[in-house]
Write a protein that binds this DNA or RNA. Sequence first.
RNA 1: GGGCGAUUAACUCAGCGGUUUAGAGUGCUUCCCUUACAAGGAAGAAGUCGCAGGUUCGAAUCCUGCAUCGCCCA
Length: 897
Amino acid sequence: MSTSVSQTSIPKHFDPASVEEKWYRFWEENGFFHSEPDDRESYTVVIPPPNVTGVLHMGHMLNNTIQDVLVRRARMLGKNACWVPGTDHASIATEAKVVQKLRKEGITKADLTREEFLEHAWEWTDEHGGIILQQLRKLGASCDWERTRFTLEDDLYESVIDCFIELYDRGYIYRGKRMINWDPEAQTALSDEEVIHREEQSKLYHVRYRIKNSAEWVTIATTRPETILADTAVCVHPEDERYQNLIGKTAIIPIVEREVPVIADEYVDMEYGTGCLKITPAHDENDYQIGQKHDLEIIDMLNPDGTLSEAAEHYIGSDRFEARQRIIDELEEREQLVDTEKINNKIGYSERTDAVIEPRLSLQWFCRMDELSRPAHENVMNDNIQFHPAKFKNSYNHWMENIRDWCISRQLWWGQRIPAWYYGHGKDDYVIAKTENEALEKAREKSGTPSLGRDDIRQDEDVLDTWFSSWLWPITVFDGIKDPDNEEINYYYPTDDLVTAPEIMFFWVARMIIAGYEFRNEKPFSNVYYTGIVRDSQRRKMSKSLGNSPDPIKLMEQYGADGVRAGMLFSSPAGNDLLFEEQLCEQGRNFANKIWNAFRFLSMNKKEETDYSPELRIDESNLVDRWMFSRLHETIDAINNDMESFRINEALHKIYSLIWDDFCDWYIELIKADERGAKIPADRLARGLNFFEQLMKLLHPFMPFITEEIWQHIRPRETGEAMIVASWPQFDSTAVSEDDQALFGTIQRIISAVRNIRAEFKMSPNDEIELLINAKDKQTEEAFRQNSWIFEKLQTIARFEVKAGLSKPGTSASAVVEGSEIFVPLEGFVDIEKERERIQKEINRLEGFLKSVEGKLSNEGFINNAPEAVVQREQNKKQDTETNLEKLRGILSELTA
RNA sequence: GGGCGAUUAACUCAGCGGUUUAGAGUGCUUCCCUUACAAGGAAGAAGUCGCAGGUUCGAAUCCUGCAUCGCCCA
């Protein structure tokens, strides 16, 4: 055995750790990730910006792997690929974290001025921000890091404020008192989208209220008995016969002993509860509507932190849930609690703090959506912007048709501060202005008080919803708001593909589309690829709180970034959830190792480390070359189609199978040297390595590190010849030959049949056999004869004979493959009974098949209606099967010994 | 309550335009450390494609209903 240097220097197992950092630095340092506008076609992706203080989780892994696959392929296709990374300031989440950290240090937010608090927040951001971006590098993400943006940096801040002012001027933004979703933990308003509704088992309390000046009672049902303290009416359905006599009377609220009217409204559902509703206009959206209609008093009984306010009169200062229990107890004591019913109802929780949401009447800023959203609605429905998979158009459509105004103010400090300035206490005593000076001027004018000074105006304390900044992301990363006609925005916008989770379709995707049309009069991207949600084996969503998510960094250390990438993509078609198991990564790692060893083997066969020069032409006289060439191009075409329709896992499966099943299992086996220990002849090796290079190109978007490593090893390359910028293989339809593939396929099946015989009769691969083939016809005989070397290479054969009309030798194991009879003489070896069983089994299989084919052909409807080609195909199948069966039966009859 | 989706081998999943008695990975059985790879090779077993109807020459695939599960919205 030869012991060349190369053979010993390449390790048997691929070690990802040793190459990943090296190549990542190489790519980055040589500017391959960086994009500048030029003459080429642009391909642009903006990253869904992760929370600035977040850490990488499996969802990011999947999402960013997919983006990287798209971007790398586009780059190889010669496009000017630009993937813009960045982070989101995530106001609620980040502010909550900072508040928590300060609390540990004994500082409460109330002790600090806004400026002091923001200093702490920035400190925190500087410390933790960007960790996630560092982690993305480990994954191989080919982002243009020079373009990294942050939603709260100065330029983006200013852009958001400009947009607010613009929308205000266009009449879309208004300030209004509305029922909003209040998060008592974060002490801020939330948009409807930030509330998660969960169905829970809870109780419906039936409470009776006394009717004034009467012995009568009226029984209401409520799930939130504490709000009784703020009731200002009792309501029944106007047609409810049970309660006709009560309408117009006065009921007395228990505990507070307040007198309230009994009113009638069609809103009441007579079937639900007692059919009698208590009305609390300050703490329920629907009650508020009824309150407005009937001009009811509004009593706000809650403090911002969820404790009871003075207005509650009782239990002042106690928490809402504590108060609930105490009120239940008191009602029971007073014998006014008549029943407790178990029911399922939906309870809203804060997406960020998980606190139970309180509907609360509050003065907030809103963005009117009806008109604004129209182009965004249309252009998705008409496929101007395509969703992948398209099924998500349905939910988009539904949301758009029922779109509600967007509550955009948040009672937080971390974010873009609302540019509203108040000069009085009246509802309209404010101006919208970019600067204090401008505000002062406007305020003087609007109020008609030229003497107003700086101290007379104060800016709104609140900030804007984070999504009000990220909806501009595809525009602001190219400074398209501040500088609407700059070269970059004109070149990169609209971007091409957006990869994100369906969970944020409304939060983000829909709003980006809205902003795109409003501020650029153009879509922000052409395709939206929705990934699935990464779940654990129990189908639970992976989350930090459950602790069921593996640490992606550790996973990559264990299986290699390539292994994890491939593992995640194997089973995650667009929009389908991914049940993540480490086994998937194992499959990816094993694949990398397989490729590594194919490379190692080919390298071992080079005479010198550097003696390889590519041979781009195949050996036309060699069936194996022609077959591999055909398979390669067939696959290039298929992968291109898959990628263009975002079937990324399909594309990966195809390249996986081409490399492993075709190239490793057959092609490499067949280019091996004829003699033991000898090297592969140089010309064969050159062609083999050329195929290998093409395969590495096709795989590169999926597994960037190992492909670059091998690419650079195969032969010396200039920096500009790196894999990352290599050209994507061009599909050549003339390379695809059905005949070559059919012939090679037949040979493969004959080899398999022989292997099966060996296995059945417990022969070792090294036992010499004779292989005799009675070819179907002269033409087949000639084809097999020409390619006899293939049989001899893959089997240990003492004698090979092929002839049309060859008669069956004495005792032998047999098989029939596509009309040709295969004989392996096994004097003394063969167990006749066993051979009979084998043949009989095959006969049974073919008979079953024949029956189904005959079934079709005997159906007149099929003959008359099916396309001619289909009928013809069935007829061919019938004939072929009959021929095979006939031969097998002949073989079987001779076995009656 | 409204909408969307899923149900395919023991497990996790593909299956795009209707037509080789349904594919992959894992697991399982048998054999093999055969001149790269045991993280490997060879052979094999394994599925009435959730149920019931319908359309069609032909249905895992299209339609309707049902069951179970999931997601989104109110």
